[in-house]
C-alpha cells in the first residue's frame, strides 16, 4: 500500500495552498504587525483583537461568514463578480482567501512580538547613520527580528496545512481544487477506509512533528505558541 493518486493530488494541493498562503501572509501580515508593534493609536486594541479572532472562533463560524461575504450577495462576491472572476467559494482561490484570514494571527503575532522586543533604539541608531525607512527595515529590523519572521512563516504554513473546518465550509470537497489532505482523511474515515486514512494521518503527524522540531531547534529562545 502507499499513497493513491488522489492522495498525492491532495498532498500537492495542500503544499501549494500552504506555500501561497504563507507568502501572502508574510506580505500582508508584516505591515500589520509593524503597525501593531509601534502604534500608540487607540485602534491598536480593536485591530489586534480582530487579527486574533481566528484563534478563538470555531472555524465553522469564520467559514460561515466568509462564505456569506464571498457568496453572490456578499460584498466580496459582488466585487469579484464585478471584476469578472466569478465567485470564490468552492475554488482554490476561495481557499487561499479564507486561509489568509484563518492563519493571520499565527503570522502577525510572532512578528509583532519580535518588533516590539527590538524596540525603537536600533531604528534610531540607523537613522542617525543615514539609513532611510526602507533601508532600516531591510538592514536592521529584518536581520534582528529574523527569528520572529521564521517562526511566523513556519507557524503560518503548518497551520494552513492543518486547517479543516474552514476548508469544508468554503471549499467543499473538489478533487484537485479544494480537496486538501485533511479533507481527504475525513473522506477515508467516512468511507471506513481506515488503512488509507492511517497513511495520510501518520504522514501529517510526522510532518507536524518535524515542523515543530525545526522551530524549536532554530529558535531555542523564542517565545512559542
Amino acid at each position: 500500500m502507499g499513497f493513491s493518486d488522489a492522495d498525492l493530488q491532495a498532498i500537492w494541493l495542500t503544499l501549494r495552498l500552504a506555500s501561497l498562503v504563507t507568502l501572502l501572509l508574510l506580505l500582508i501580515g508584516t505591515p500589520i504587525a509593524w503597525w501593531l508593534a509601534r502604534t500608540r493609536s487607540r485602534w491598536k486594541g480593536p485591530v489586534g483583537a480582530v487579527v486574533a479572532l481566528p484563534l478563538v472562533l470555531p472555524p465553522t463560524v469564520l467559514g460561515f461568514y466568509l462564505l456569506v461575504a464571498m457568496g453572490p450577495n456578499g460584498p466580496v462576491g459582488q466585487f469579484t463578480q464585478w471584476l469578472g472572476i466569478g465567485l470564490l467559494p468552492f475554488t482554490f482561490w476561495g481557499l487561499v482567501v479564507a486561509s489568509v484570514f484563518y492563519s493571520m494571527p499565527f503570522v502577525v503575532q510572532p512578528i509583532q512580538n519580535a518588533i516590539e522586543a527590538l524596540g525603537e533604539r536600533p531604528l534610531e541608531v540607523a537613522a542617525t547613520l543615514r539609513a532611510g525607512p526602507w533601508d532600516r527595515f531591510f538592514t536592521v529590523v529584518l536581520p534582528l527580528a529574523r527569528p520572529g519572521f521564521l517562526t511566523a512563516a513556519i507557524l503560518g504554513f503548518a497551520h494552513t496545512v492543518g486547517e479543516f473546518g474552514v476548508v469544508l465550509m468554503i471549499g467543499g470537497n473538489i478533487p484537485g481544487a479544494t480537496r486538501v489532505v485533511s479533507v481527504q482523511i475525513f473522506d477515508y474515515v467516512e468511507a471506513m477506509e481506515y488503512g488509507e486514512a492511517h497513511w495520510l494521518a501518520a504522514s501529517m503527524v510526522i510532518f507536524s512533528f518535524l515542523v515543530l522540531l525545526a522551530l524549536y531547534t532554530l529558535n531555542p529562545n523564542q517565545r512559542k505558541f
Binding site: V125, A126, A127, T128, L129, R130, G132, D135, V140, L144
Partner: peptide, 17 residues
Amino acid sequence: PTHQRPLGYVFQEASLF
C-alpha cells in the same frame, strides 16, 4: 528627517548593531 541630517549621534547605552 534624521537620516538626511549630517549629524553623528552617540547614545547613552551601547547602541552597536
